[in-house]
Amino acid sequence: MAELRVRVNGADHLLDIPPQVSLLDALREHLGLTGTKKGCDQGACGACTVLADGERINACLALAVQYADREITTIEGIDHPIQEAFVRHDGFQCGYCTSGQICSAIGMLAEHKDGMPSAVTGEPSAEGEELTDEEIRERMSGNLCRCGAYHGIVEAIGEVAR
C-alpha cells in the first residue's frame, strides 16, 4: 500500500491505496468523485479527462501516486462558462462523455492560448490567433462522443473561445 496526499478541487485528501491504482479509480472509488467517467480504461475515449495543474490528462492512464503533489481539477471543481454553453448548444445527449469533453475543452483552450500547435496548425500558432472550428475538431479528437453531439460541442467551445 502507498500512502499519499492528493489535492483535488482545492481540498487535500489522504489515501492509502496500492501503488497500481489509477488516478481515475482513486477519484471514483476512493474519493467518491464519480463525475469523472470510465469509458474504456485504456486512454482511447477521453471520458476520464481531468486537469492536472491546468493540463488535460487521461486519468485512467495516470497512477494516483504519480499525482501526489499536483493540483487535480475534476468536473465537480469546475465553474466555467463552457458548461452553460454546452447546455445551450446541446453539446451532449446521454451526458457520459460530457465531463471529459468539458475538462478537455478547458485544457485545450489553454494550450491554444499558449501557442501549442496541432495537426491543423502545422506549426506553433501565433498568440491571439483565432481558434477555428477545424482547430477545435482536431484538438478535441481525443474525446469520443458516441451519441454524436460533436456539432453542438464545437459550437459551444467556439462560442466560449471567441
Partner: peptide, 21 residues
C-alpha cells in the same frame, strides 16, 4: 428548449448506474 438534465450532466452531478454508493 434546453434539456432539463443539462445542469446535472455538465457539472458531474448525474449519477450513472455504477456510481451509487
Amino acid at each position: 428548449i434546453d434539456r432539463i438534465d443539462g445542469p446535472a450532466k455538465t457539472t458531474g452531478g448525474a449519477r450513472f448506474s455504477a456510481e451509487h454508493a
